[in-house]
Design a protein around this nucleic acid. Structure first.
Lengths: 139, 139
DNA sequence: TTCTTTGCAAATTCTTTGCACCGAA
DNA sequence: TTCGGTGCAAAGAATTTGCAAAGAA
């Protein structure tokens, strides 16, 4: 595997923030179209795919798009997903993992992994909505 | 809302089986292109969307496609997903629900719902693979 | 008749592929 | 020099939309 400017650029940006992202969000953080170290959309996808294979990132689907997260070496199976700002907050719970293993055993199911997504509205967005609503409520 | 042949046809087929399905799988079970009661692809999507709004079906994303399940009036938040045959087996667990509520509270997160997907290989597919492998192993 | 619903074709969105050129090694 | 890697354009797959014609009420 060759050390190219594109792979370096993507690597830098991907690991400059601990946040989840999709291909679109990543490209927004990469150098724009005129720059010397611009990275094209196909290369973004190809590079992300390589990083997943290399174990640097994990990929999963959300709302029909592919979302990537850093592979921190320990399980990150569980997420709070804000339906307003699309922010993901991750955690991992032995309770859920044990439960999943137990259910799999009962169904003679060979478990390869599991993922719990809790949908809702995050604290920030609730705050924002409350503030926005107040002036109207007072009329 | 008008009573059209298309809506009736889709309704019949959707509720003729308790299985999960995506738009493609549904259309395969609908009358083919020449038939009197053919339903076009856009109408399939529009009708499914109406059924979701009406509370007859629930929709969620899996592997980048939209998957529909019957809304049976009780929670079906948890699924075993076979990566081989794509079969979904559903269940619902108060443990996971309670856990989700508890985590949400800690994060001041307003929970709207949750979904646990356990990925792996179902009992049937394990059987099938074992059978297929045997002749080769004996050589 | 009226106004919703449908089918067709085309547009969108996200992702992947074909291919000629570029550039690490 | 040699292949692997890249950008562009185009292809795909899933879903949605514009619009004129069809058909419930």
């Amino acid at each position: 595997m060759r050390k190219t400017q594109q792979r370096k650029t993507v690597l830098d940006v991907v690991f400059s923030s601990p946040e989840h992202f999709d291909a679109d969000q990543l490209q927004e953080r990469l150098p724009p179209k005129g720059s010397t170290d611009f990275v094209s959309r196909p290369t973004v996808y190809r590079t992300l795919s390589e990083f997943v294979d290399a174990g640097l990132l994990r990929k999963f689907e959300l709302d029909g798009r592919s979302v990537y997260e850093h592979d921190l070496g320990y399980p990150q199976n569980d997420h709070l997903y804000c339906m307003e700002c699309r922010k993901l907050t991750e955690f991992s719970s032995p309770e859920v993992s044990n439960f999943a293993a137990q259910v799999s055993a009962v169904h003679q199911f060979q478990m390869r992994g599991h993922r719990l997504i809790i949908r809702g509205v995050c604290a920030d967005c609730r705050q924002r909505k409350r503030r926005q609503r107040r002036p109207v409520d007072l009329i």
